[in-house]
Amino acid sequence: MVYDGIVLSLLIGWFRGGSLKGLAHMKLRGGWLFPLLLALQFVIFFLQEKVAWIAKMSNVIFLLVYITGLVFLWLNRHQPGLPVIFAGVLLNFIVMAANGGRMPVSVEAAQFLGREYIEALKAGLYAKHQAITSDTLLPFLGDIIPLSPPYPRQQVISIGDVVMNVGAFLFIQHLMLSAPRHGKGNAGEEKVTASVNQ
C-alpha cells in the first residue's frame, strides 16, 4: 500500500510538471534514524525465532520503533505533508498500543486473503497482527479497509495507513513541484500549474 501511494504520487507529480530532481533536495532532520530503524526491524525479524526474550519483547520493540518514527516525523513537522504522515502513524500507534502492540485486523475484511492467513491470524501467529474480537479496543482504527478489485492489489489497511499515504502524497508533490526549473519552456507550464493550484 505504501509503495502504491508513492508510485501514484510520483506519477501525478510528473504530470503536474514536477521533477524527480526535487526528491534529491529533500532535507530531513535526523535522517540517520531511518536505516537504524530498518536494521532494527530486520534484526528482530531474524532473531525472534532464535532468541526467546526477543520474541517476547517483540511487541514492545515494535512500539518503540513506532515512537522513534514519530519523533523523527515530529522533528520534520515543518515540511509540508509530514504532519499528516505523523497523524497517520499516530493513529496506527494508538490502536496498536491499546491492543498490546499488535495491529487488530478485521477477519471479515481479510476474508479474501485466504483461509490460511485467517487461521494464522486467529491463532495469533503473526507478530504484528491479530484478529479483531469483541475485546479489541478502538477497532475502527484497525486494519478494516479491504482493498479489492478494481484496485490492482488485495490488502487490508487501516485509516492510519490511508492518512500516511495522503501525507506522503503531499510531501512528494511538494518536493517535485518545488524543484528548481531550467529552460524557458517551463515558464508557461508553471503558470498553468499555478492557476490550478490556487
Binding site: S106, E108, A109, I132, P139, F140, I144, I145, P146, I159, V162
Partner: peptide
C-alpha cells in the same frame, strides 16, 4: 466495522 470503512 463495515460501516466504519464506509464512513471513512
Amino acid at each position: 466495522l463495515k460501516d466504519w470503512v464506509f464512513v471513512y
